[in-house]
Design a protein around this nucleic acid. Structure first.
Length: 341
DNA sequence: GGAAATGATTCCGA
DNA sequence: TCGGAATCATTTCC
């Protein structure tokens, strides 16, 4: 609180003796070239301002009122504002003018894209749909997980908006308070509307930085949620028995070349209700594990070979003469075994 | 509870 | 871009 008197003293002092151009300034601003009378007025006003803090509250209030009504007050106020503008505020320089923050823009864009900010309709639906597609084949759990994801996204969204509203409210309240304070003080201190506006901008920037932290936290929360949802390893399910059998049948019946074509992968994916990449993964794993331990898989290979042989024989017996690639072929098995060694 | 099995991911080379 | 290899993370089995 005692900054105010000090400032007043300082400016008054500058006005009276420290600033050689003040008299000229006043003359320029008022057009008063006629004289000692007005200089005397100004001297009186400055003297009253300087001594105002020595008085009781009531006296000071009365003095303030008298000063505000003084005919020279507007001119003196303009001059002091001008002096202050040139001496104090110029130090701050142009550095206050900042370019739009790229990071803030990135955060805003991300929050908008993911449906956290902006209109709620379908917010995050795209992400949820993508996530659901990524985990295709998991089956009935999908719907549950999807709604779980959306519920958590909504929760993040709600927290974000609540906090954002709080910050905005606080910002508005604080800004109004500061503006009122400065307007009130501008009755006795050289505070121009421009300076009030600058102060408001400073407050907004401070609150913006707080908002940026909020946005950053929201983005992080969202990223964690999504990575958990999308990370298939966290919710891996073994394929069902039927799917595994279909894949094994294909593998052992094509042992000479266990590399299904795109069409074959697509068909297998359909049959097993899994994605093509899951088929690729399965064959990748199977080949490497078979190669690593042929002995262990030999029994399994025999079982599937026998089963396929029976099936082929049955087809053959029905007069359906085919040369299907799924025909059991122990020679082929030996070929792949050989290739792998 | 620990080992084995299994599906997914990552890195690297052809 | 695809496949091999290593590895991770989870599930299943004992």
């Amino acid at each position: 609180m005692d900054d105010q008197p000090r400032l007043m003293h300082a400016h008054a002092a500058v006005g009276m003796s420290g600033h050689p151009g003040l008299s000229q300034h006043i003359q320029d601003n008022t057009g008063a070239t006629d004289g000692d009378g007005r200089k005397q007025d100004i001297g009186d006003i400055l003297q009253q301002i300087m001594t105002i803090t020595d008085q009781s509250l009531d006296e000071a209030q009365a003095r303030k009122h008298a000063l505000n009504c003084h005919r020279m007050k507007p001119a003196l106020f303009n001059v002091l504002c001008d002096v202050k503008e040139k001496t104090v505020l110029s130090i701050r320089g142009a550095q206050e003018e900042e370019s739009p923050d790229a990071q803030l823009m990135r955060l805003d864009n991300m929050l908008l894209a993911e449906g956290v900010s902006g209109p709620e309709k379908g917010g995050g639906a795209a992400a949820a749909a993508a996530a659901a597609a990524a985990s295709a084949g998991v089956g009935a759990d999908n719907a549950t997980e999807h709604s779980d994801y959306r519920a958590k996204l909504t929760q993040i969204r709600q927290i974000y908006h609540t906090e954002l509203e709080k910050y905005e409210q606080a910002c508005n309240e604080f800004t109004t308070h500061v503006m009122n304070l400065l307007r009130e003080q501008s009755r006795t201190r050289p505070i121009s509307p421009k300076e009030i506006e600058r102060m408001v901008n400073i407050i907004h920037r401070k609150f913006s930085s707080i908002q940026m932290q909020l946005k950053q936290s929201t983005c992080e929360a969202f990223m964690i949620l999504r990575s958990r949802f999308l990370d298939a390893r966290r919710k891996r399910r073994n394929f069902n028995k039927q799917a595994t059998e279909i894949l094994n049948e294909y593998f052992y019946s094509h042992l000479s070349n266990p590399y299904p074509s795109e069409e074959a992968k697509e068909e297998l994916a359909k049959k097993c209700s899994i994605t093509m990449s899951q088929v690729s993964n399965w064959f990748g794993n199977k080949r490497i594990r078979y190669k690593k331990n042929i002995g262990k898989f030999q029994e399994e290979a025999n079982i599937y070979a026998a089963r396929t042989a029976v099936s082929a024989a049955s087809v053959s017996a029905h007069g359906s003469q085919t040369n299907s690639p799924s025909t059991p072929n122990s020679a082929a098995m030996r070929t792949y075994d050989h290739r792998l060694q």
